[in-house]
Amino acid sequence: MMVQTFLVIDDDAGDRKLLRRLISQRQEPSETQEAPTGAEAMNRNLAEPDMIFLDYMLPDTSGVELITELAQRWPRAAICMMTGQGDEEIAKESIRRGAIDYLPKRNLSPAALDRVIKTGCKLARMRWQLDEKREDLSMFSEVLVHDLKAPIRSMRFLVEKLQEDIAGGAAQEINRDVELIGKSADRLHDLVNSLAGHIHYDSETDEEVVHAAVLVEEACQVLLAEIERTEARITCDADGMVRCRTPQIVQLLQNLVGNAIKYAGQSPPRINVRCREGPEGLHFEVADQGVGVPPEHRETIFLPFKRLPVSASIPGTGLGLATCRKIVDRHGGRIWCDPEVSEGTIIHFTLPHRPQSLDRAG
Rank of each mutant, 00 (worst) to 15 (best):
M2L: 15
T5Q: 14
T5P: 06
L7E: 01
I9A: 01
R16Q: 09
L18C: 06
R21I: 13
I23G: 05
R26D: 06
E28I: 15
S30G: 07
T32M: 06
E34N: 04
N43T: 15
N45Q: 09
P49A: 07
M57W: 14
T61Q: 08
L66F: 02
I67V: 07
I67D: 00
P75A: 04
T83C: 14
K92A: 15
S94W: 11
A99E: 08
D101G: 08
N107P: 04
N107S: 12
D114C: 12
M126D: 15
W128L: 13
W128H: 15
D131A: 12
K133R: 15
R134E: 14
S138R: 12
S138F: 12
M139C: 09
V143H: 07
V145L: 13
P151C: 07
I152N: 10
R156M: 13
L158G: 03
L162M: 11
E164P: 07
A167T: 11
A167C: 12
N175Q: 10
D177Y: 06
H189M: 10
V192R: 05
H200G: 08
Y201E: 10
Y201M: 09
D202Q: 05
E207L: 04
V209P: 00
E218N: 09
E218D: 08
E218M: 04
A219N: 03
V222T: 11
L224M: 13
E226L: 01
I227M: 03
R229E: 06
A232R: 01
T235I: 01
D237C: 02
C244H: 01
R245W: 05
Y263V: 00
S267M: 11
P269M: 03
R270G: 00
P279M: 06
P279F: 03
P279G: 09
P294Q: 09
F302M: 09
F305S: 14
P309Q: 10
I314A: 05
G332V: 02
G333D: 03
W336S: 02
G344R: 00
I347P: 02
Q356D: 15
A361N: 15
A361L: 14
G362Q: 15
